[in-house]
């Protein structure tokens, strides 16, 4: 870990300006991802702007009948919120399927969205990695890729987005709200928030330098049965091999997104229209362009079987 300076901002705009105004500055949320990466010198910020005092820690109802989740709301508080549990249960379930109780207490909504990949080569600074060090190559492509992505990849990077919460946000059509140093705000549909690696795997998302997440907005409730099913090698405290977030209506239609398979939560609205025909119909379409490796091709079978379980559960 390199030495860094530290500041606590007191308002969103001040925080955004502080990061935009200083090369190498970064926001610090709960720190559960950033500090680990700093210890390994995968992230080497020269300055940290701690956002814990900027407010944004409430969950409020919107005029449109949805919810606005402040960027600083902890994962624990969000998962436990009665409105979320009632109307957006897939989100609660996704959150509690992640990390551990202690981590969820610390983790913020914004930080969770921005957690970086768990590609093991990304985590070893001796290894070539285009995401960590652009232009050095990708050690994972011909290497140990069991956990990595099967779709949405490029020949520069095959990392997955590892998180759970965002997969649920994707089926809920959430929007990410931000503020920049000049005070300009924007609202980014979750579908457009995370990037595919393409030629620039170092950029995980579309945020600009110094752009602060202020909250996440959920549109009004859509009813249906909410399921989050996460499959992993042990029963808790592990990242997904494959996860399925789904909201399924009584008539068999619905929405579905997959985690653990792509550089972003993977949802294909055209494929999803085939839900009434069953898991195979959805997965064969959603993963038609998959380029799996020998190590991770099982994920496509697993996605199909997991979705079949989810559909069966929703029906019962």
């Amino acid at each position: 870990m390199r030495a860094f300076t530290y500041q606590r901002a007191t308002s969103p705009r001040e925080a955004a300006a502080a990061v935009a105004g200083k090369r190498g500055a970064m926001f610090l949320g709960g720190g559960t991802n950033l500090l680990d990466l700093m210890k390994l010198e995968i992230e080497v910020p020269t300055h940290l702007v701690d956002v814990q005092d900027i407010g944004l820690d409430a969950i409020e109802e919107t005029d449109e009948g949805g919810l606005r989740i402040g960027a600083l709301v902890s994962n624990t508080a969000l998962a436990a919120d009665a409105r979320v549990r009632r109307d957006y249960a897939v989100l609660s379930r996704a959150i509690v399927a992640g990390a551990s109780g202690q981590l969820r207490n610390k983790a913020t909504t914004a930080g969770n969205l921005l957690q970086r990949t768990r590609c093991p080569y990304f985590y070893d600074p001796n290894m070539p990695c285009n995401k960590r060090k652009p232009g050095t190559g990708c050690a994972a492509i011909e290497g140990y890729s069991r956990q990595l992505a099967v779709i949405g990849t490029s020949d520069k990077c095959i990392a997955t987005y590892p998180g759970d919460m965002a997969v649920a946000l994707r089926v809920l059509d959430a929007e990410v709200e931000t503020i920049k140093a000049d005070g300009a705000t924007r609202s980014i549909p979750i579908a457009d928030f995370h990037r595919l690696p393409g030629d620039a795997p170092e950029r995980d998302n579309v945020l600009e330098p110094g752009e602060l997440i202020t909250g996440v907005v959920l549109p009004g409730p859509i009813g249906g049965t909410h399921v989050y099913r996460k499959v992993r090698d042990r029963r808790s405290y592990a990242f997904a091999l494959v996860s399925v977030a789904a909201v399924i209506q009584d008539d068999g239609t619905g929405r579905v997104a997959f985690g653990g398979v792509a550089p972003k939560p993977w949802r294909d609205e055209a494929a999803e229209a085939a839900l009434p025909q069953g898991a195979k119909a959805v997965v064969s379409r959603a993963f038609a362009k998959a380029r799996p490796s020998e190590h991770n091709k099982f994920k496509i079978t697993l996605a199909e079987r997991t979705l079949a379980a989810v559909i069966a559960k929703a029906r019962s």
Binding site: R118, P120, Y121, Y123, D124, M127, A139, E142, G143, Y144, D233, R234, R235, S236, Y237, A238, F239
Partner: peptide, 19 residues
């Protein structure tokens, strides 16, 4: 990793033991 000659999953997030 038989190219680089090392154990890749060298932390307790990558090397899973039962919970």
């Amino acid at each position: 990793d038989t190219r680089f000659g090392f154990f890749v999953n060298h932390d307790l997030a990558g090397y899973e033991v039962p919970v």
